[in-house]
Design a protein around this nucleic acid. Structure first.
Length: 766
DNA sequence: CACCCTCGAGTTCA
DNA sequence: CTCGAGGGTG
């Protein structure tokens, strides 16, 4: 159950008491709110139905919600997220497919992103193989992996990849796909074999399909991959049959005694039996010719009849494949070369400036929403004014966007041919967009402009409060982005509950009513301008209240979460959020001292430096009395951090934070600490070991793993290097695991990790 | 003083 | 995840 479900979702056109300046909600915003509501409703109903076998709404109601959502998404395609229920037709239909284990695990592939990385993989592989290698190169089709099971030449089952061990049975649908033989041609088939392939929709057919859907006034698909996925998961096989799905096979799973020696010969054999193989594969005998193949195909990737996102390179010789074996999740005898992330054109609508918790003013781009590599992008950071200049973009330009690291949108530059003269350049504002203070560089050489109003700037206070609640800080549930905003919101006539973080632990239920929580996108583009004449703040952009955690009520304490309260003619039910926040704040008061240090928002003091300081000094008083030199003597703390701490402590309003927190009962010391200088010894089974935890380790949360390493006397690190002693990797581990394997560092699973923590290196040395 | 590890800070979207 | 910069080491 999501947190949001605790709150009422409201459609309040004007949540701001100073109503005049606020424009009406746009149609788009109304549609967005409705789409969110519908999606929640549909998903909850589908979950109940498929997971727990119960109906919480009638079929008719469900259909109506689905139809309305489709309608909205048709009007505003941007609102159709990747996981929109309208994409998986029949709600969460997937859940109705039977789970079937694969006979042989369906592995994924490790990735390389440059020629250099590929060459070093090839070098290592040749070394490990102890022989020259013939490489089989093939296109990496952007589709859905499928496992086909043939028994004595007859197709007896088709399953999706699932988690690699167990897939979903989609046999009935696969049987309808053109070009997949139900019965193999020729003779000499094995008793039992698994064939791996990719289901996809050719680009041309995809466009055709979308055109047909459009004409039929049905909703269209955003890309061939989604479309193939949706088509394969139809409950009714007749619907699948109507879609232009294709198959290409590219591997084998379980198969006793393969009658040939090379993967390429396997393909030839499969083809002779009537299975579709790609005509693009090629066997090459040197890594450098493979590199050439990669760049050649990259240049013509869009002229191929289906979408590709890279090239797969395999060791052709099956005996060598066997010798090389596999890591926990991917074979060592194959690698995927991924082409650079998808690039998309869109329009640069505006450039605005946001201010973070440190006061840094960061320009960011607002772009016309577009789909890039899996999600809809609306914002992209521009780092600072020099970057804006360097990119050469003007407001109004058509620009090229891509996803860097597959997550963060990056603006590459303008499309100059599409300029029409109406574009204009961005000028860095002189003043803080939120508090109006004059922006200035922190030092001479500093490129970044900062808002000097550290104490009072609402943007900075909000950022700091949010940081206190964050995972690295005090981990206060219910104190995230929007709650921090609500607590510090300075829009008159509402006084913010907090002017600075000093009062955080003095908050009471009465104090936080009324507290309204605003949604994310509104915070991001928030901008307050002062009226020229009255100097009253104007709210330039409409705020939209989507939920509330409290409402001012006339009622005697103690408050009761379940109470219904009458305020004039209106009736409110108090939501749990406010009560939980107060309870969480109380719990936070006794969290570890290093978390307190992080929460003070001292520059350069993050979790690691804070731990070092907390260990050596044990209390805020000890830190206060110590000189900068004494601080800098601590390992991991240098002059800069030491001075930053001393400077922070010398500021009056910072001291006020410390004093008020203390007065409120916040524990600013390590209980039982022997005193300054006496570092708490870190004895344990893992003394002196540097351990990196990555991926999801069963039985540990991300931070839990770190804590466990420390508790065992080890040192947790965030990146893998040659100094690392062990890497504990769970499912979903990425580059760190790759790096560990490269460097030959022992890799442990959750089980091994637990043993290491209990018994030290001896326990896992075997 | 030049290098290599790490850490801190900022970042988007669901 | 990435970038820039702090801290430690040879």
């Amino acid at each position: 159950m999501s947190e949001d479900a605790l709150f009422e979702i409201e459609d309040v056109p004007d949540a701001n008491p100073s109503a005049e300046q606020v424009s009406e909600l746009t149609d788009f915003e109304k549609a967005q709110t409705e789409a969110i509501e519908l999606t929640t409703k549909i998903n909850e109903a589908a979950d109940a139905y498929y997971e727990r076998d119960e109906s919480i709404i009638s079929d008719a109601e469900y259909d109506m919600a689905m139809r309305r959502l489709e309608e909205i998404e048709k009007t505003y395609p941007v609102l159709q997220g990747q996981d929109s229920p309208t994409l998986s037709v029949g709600g969460r239909a997937a859940a109705t497919f039977e789970k079937v284990p694969h006979l042989e695990r369906m592995m994924s592939l490790d990735n390389v992103f440059s020629e250099e990385q590929f060459l070093s993989w090839a070098e290592k592989t040749e070394r490990d193989a102890g022989a020259a290698i013939e490489y089989l190169c093939e296109l990496k089709i952007d589709g859905l992996a499928i496992n086909l099971r043939y028994e004595n030449g007859t197709l007896t089952g088709a399953t999706t990849r699932g988690d690699g061990v167990v897939g979903e049975d989609v046999t009935a649908n696969v049987l309808t796909i053109q070009g997949i033989p139900h019965r193999l041609a020729g003779s000499g088939f094995p008793e039992l074999m698994e064939v791996r392939g990719e289901i996809y929709i050719p680009t041309a057919e995809f466009e055709e399909l979308n055109k047909r859907l459009l004409e039929a006034k049905e909703k269209t698909f955003s890309n061939p991959r989604n479309s193939a996925s949706g088509s394969l998961r139809q409950i009714d096989p007749a619907k699948t049959a109507a879609r232009p799905l294709r198959l290409l096979v590219h591997g084998i799973g379980a198969w006793n005694e393969v009658p040939v020696a090379n993967q390429s010969e396997v393909y030839a054999l499969l083809e002779s039996w009537g299975l579709p193989t790609s005509k693009y594969f090629k066997v090459l005998s040197s890594a450098s010719s493979v590199a050439d193949f990669i760049s050649e195909m990259g240049a013509q990737r869009h002229s191929i009849d289906h979408e590709i996102d890279g090239i797969v390179i395999k060791v052709d010789d099956l005996a060598i494949q066997k010798k090389l074996g596999a890591t926990s999740r991917a074979p060592r005898w194959a690698i995927a070369y991924k082409y650079p992330p998808e690039q998309v054109n869109t329009k640069l609508v505006d450039i605005k400036v946001s201010v973070g918790r440190t006061g840094r003013a960061t320009p960011f781009a607002i772009v016309e929403p577009v789909q890039v590599a899996g999600s809809v992008v609306e914002y992209a950071t521009l780092h600072n004014q020099d970057v804006v200049k360097a990119k050469g973009v003007l407001i109004g330009d058509t620009i090229v966007i891509r996803k860097a690291g597959d997550v963060i949108p990056e603006i590459l530059g303008p499309v100059l041919e599409l300029r029409n003269g109406t574009e204009y350049s961005f000028v860095m504002p002189e003043e803080c967009p939120e508090c109006g203070s004059k922006l200035a560089p922190a030092s001479e050489e500093d490129i970044d402009l900062r808002c000097p109003n550290t104490k009072g700037c609402p943007a900075q206070v909000r950022g700091r409060v949010e940081h206190i609640g964050s995972r690295g800080g005090l981990e206060i549930e219910g104190l995230g982005e929007s709650t921090a905003e609500a607590l510090t919101n300075p829009i008159p006539p509402i006084q913010p509950a907090l002017l600075t973080e000093a009062g955080l632990f003095d908050l009471t239920l009465e104090g936080i009513f009324p507290l309204e929580v605003w949604n994310y996108s509104d915070i991001r583009i928030r901008e307050i301008k002062l009226d020229k004449d009255t100097k009253e703040p104007l709210r330039e952009l409409p705020f939209r209240r989507i939920r509330k955690i409290g409402k001012k009520v006339v009622m005697d304490p103690p408050f009761d979460p379940e109470a219904e309260v009458f305020d004039g003619d209106e009736q409110y039910i108090l939501s749990k959020g406010a009560f939980e926040l107060i309870a969480e704040l109380e719990k936070a008061k006794t969290k570890p001292f290093w978390r307190m240090l992080v929460s003070l928002n001292i520059r350069h003091v993050g979790p690691v430096a804070a731990r070092a300081l907390a260990n050596h000094f044990g209390s805020i008083e000890a830190l206060d009395e110590a000189s900068a030199e004494e601080l800098a003597a601590v390992e991991g703390v240098g002059q800069i951090i030491a001075e930053s701490v001393k400077t922070w402590l010398s500021v009056d309003w910072h001291r006020e934070i410390v004093d008020r927190w203390k007065a409120a009962g916040v524990q600013l010391f390590v209980p039982g600490h022997p005193g300054p200088g006496a570092a708490v010894s870190s004895d344990g089974p893992c003394s002196g070991l540097i351990i990196v935890a990555t991926g999801s380790l069963e039985g540990f949360t991300r931070d839990g793993a770190q804590e466990a390493i420390i508790a065992a006397g080890g040192k947790p690190a965030s990146s893998v290097s040659k100094n690392t002693n062990y890497v504990a990797a769970g499912p979903g581990a990425g580059s760190k695991l790759t790096k560990a394997e490269e460097l030959g560092i022992p890799v442990l699973d959750a089980e091994g990790f637990r043993k290491l923590l209990e018994g030290g290196p001896a326990a896992v040395s075997s």
